[in-house]
């Protein structure tokens, strides 16, 4: 039985269709990523999974319990880290933790095992008001509060938005740690590059799931052939590109120009070189590169 079983979920807000026929299964113990831009429906789906919002239609089972009927039992077994800092800024680190522990009818000491590594880092600041912590520390405290009752599933809504790359990397290491303690992790992110950190991801756009797979499968299923070439005046080239007759996707990438061909490489590559030469362009070596999740997302969005 899957840990989370989402079947045919729909949700509307007035005229806006926030979620359209969502079907996802999350297995016990995996890190599952919901990847998509702002407004794609990630938060709405999170609110439904965390029993804060009711779906218009469809069925969601969390550990075999129904989100509509059994929501009180579900709440005892899930942890939630919201997208914005949602602790009491005037309560100290310690007070916040004790407060949420009590709300879950549990105590800080009972559940130290799961949060110990994070709590150690917070210990020097235990009497500081939560509002006066740095961004990274706030996030760690929020994580402690979400884990204080040893949940079976942890939901994290954009935990790394606005966080610098170093803290982000640290945060993902902590998540891996939590996963190893047998907690299923569902995390959403707008950062495409973080998708590779998940076991499986669902790409979501305008309320629709456009792909669910492992990051590696998604990348290996990229249909185009992606190349990079270094050159000057990339903007000038981009203005010429509509004269290039083959199907392709292209975008500037700093001092480089990235282009994905959708015809056979044997045909496309020489055609592109000829095109560059015809327009009197100076260019470096044209090298094949591995697409990243963003390239795949764009390709999938264009196909759907």
């Amino acid at each position: 039985m899957p840990e989370i079983d989402i079947q045919h979920i729909n949700k509307r807000f007035g005229k806006i269709e926030a979620l359209h026929d969502i079907n996802i299964m999350v297995e016990q113990g995996e890190v599952f990523g919901l990847v998509g831009p702002d407004g794609a429906g990630k938060s709405t789906l999170f609110n439904i999974l965390t029993t804060l919002l009711l779906p218009d239609s469809g069925q969601v089972d969390i550990m075999g319990m129904d989100v509509v009927k059994d929501y009180l039992q579900i709440r005892q077994s899930i942890g939630y880290l919201p997208g914005v800092f949602s602790l009491y800024p005037d309560l100290s680190v310690q007070e916040n933790l004790a407060f949420f522990a009590t709300m879950y009818k549990s105590s800080v000491l009972d559940n130290m095992s799961l949060i110990k590594p994070i709590w150690k880092q917070l210990l020097p600041f235990k009497d500081r008001p939560a509002g006066k912590l740095s961004g990274g520390m706030k996030q760690k405290l929020a994580l402690c509060c979400a884990l204080i009752h040893k949940p079976k599933i942890l939901f994290l809504d954009e935990p790394t938005t606005g966080v610098d790359p170093v803290s982000r990397k640290e945060f993902w290491d902590i998540l891996k740690d939590i996963q190893h303690k047998n907690v299923t992790v569902v995390v959403s992110t707008p950062y495409m590059d973080e998708a590779t950190r998940c076991d499986r991801i669902a790409l979501i756009q305008n309320g629709n799931i456009i792909k669910i797979d492992t990051p590696n499968n998604i990348i290996s299923n990229f249909r185009g052939h992606l190349y990079t070439v270094k050159m000057d005046d990339i903007f000038g080239l981009m203005q010429l590109m509509n004269q290039f007759e083959l199907t392709c996707n292209y975008y500037p990438y700093g001092e480089h120009f990235h282009i994905a061909f959708y015809d056979e490489v044997e045909k496309a590559l020489p055609a592109f070189e000829r095109f560059l030469q015809d327009h009197g362009r100076q260019y470096g070596e044209i090298k094949p590169i591995t697409p990243n999740i963003e390239d795949c997302f764009i390709e999938l969005m264009q196909m759907s």
Binding site: T51, R75, I78, Y80, P82, V84, M103, Y104, C145
Partner: peptide
């Protein structure tokens, strides 16, 4: 406004 209400609602309290 600050989202702490959601944090409270999500607990079984």
């Amino acid at each position: 406004e600050t989202g702490t209400m959601n944090m409270l609602l999500i607990t079984p309290v």
